[in-house]
């Protein structure tokens, strides 16, 4: 449960756990690194711009990796770029999150077979928390992915590892296949 959902009494006092406060602060000011690689970067820009306005979620791109908590790998990572991506990742302060945006950075995308110079999945070089599918993903899906990162932060506690937080998130979330199947039967009928 989020901090704001708990409700604030009229005495302006709130009793909550340290984890909740820290998580609330971190997830409400998620600063991604302004780091565009390819086509997806344009959709990321569109998400930042007027119509989708990411700033309403407290998400505001920073130019330097040292000021950011989230890396959106937006586009194709090539062999020449791979080492730079790793270095940028290492320059980010902990705790850091990685969102892989688009098919290319998920698995190589349309270049998986003949793209000799394309890295087939950014998870070969850095750990990825959330994958957003699409070529390129719509701004809505990117926002969905960012919400997922926020949920992951909400699962975190002092003393538990990222892997455990991801496990907790997986337990809590609904399997999308059930919903898709249900929608399909409704449409089919």
């Amino acid at each position: 449960m989020g901090l704001l959902d708990a409700g604030i009494t009229k005495h302006n006092m709130l009793v909550t756990s340290v984890d909740n406060v820290l998580n609330w602060a971190r997830l409400s000011s998620l600063w991604p690194m302004g780091f565009g690689l390819a086509c997806c970067a344009i959709e990321m820009m569109a998400t930042n711009a007027s119509n989708y306005d990411l700033e309403r979620f407290g998400i505001f791109p920073r130019s330097s990796p040292r000021q950011s908590d989230l890396m959106i790998v937006a586009g194709t990572v090539t062999m020449k770029m791979a080492e730079r991506v790793v270095r940028l990742y290492e320059q980010m302060p902990e705790p850091r999150y990685v969102l892989s945006m688009g098919s290319c950075s998920n698995c190589g995308g349309p270049y998986w077979e003949h793209g000799y110079h394309v890295l087939k999945g950014v998870d070969r070089i850095i750990p990825v928390d959330v994958y957003v599918p699409g070529c390129p993903p719509r701004p809505e899906s990117l926002i969905g992915g960012l919400m997922k990162i926020q949920e992951l932060i909400r699962m975190e506690q002092i003393g538990i590892s990222r892997a455990d937080a991801l496990k907790k998130l997986a337990e809590k979330s609904v399997d999308p296949r059930i919903i898709i199947e249900r929608e399909r039967t409704v449409v089919g009928a």
Binding site: E83, Y116, L119, K120, R124
Partner: peptide, 20 residues
């Protein structure tokens, strides 16, 4: 030279696997 017809892609580049 990648665009030669008989080009075989290398297995590793700086420790990263190249083919899918």
């Amino acid at each position: 030279y990648p665009l030669r017809k008989d080009y075989k892609v290398q297995d590793q580049y700086h420790g990263i696997k190249v083919p899918y």
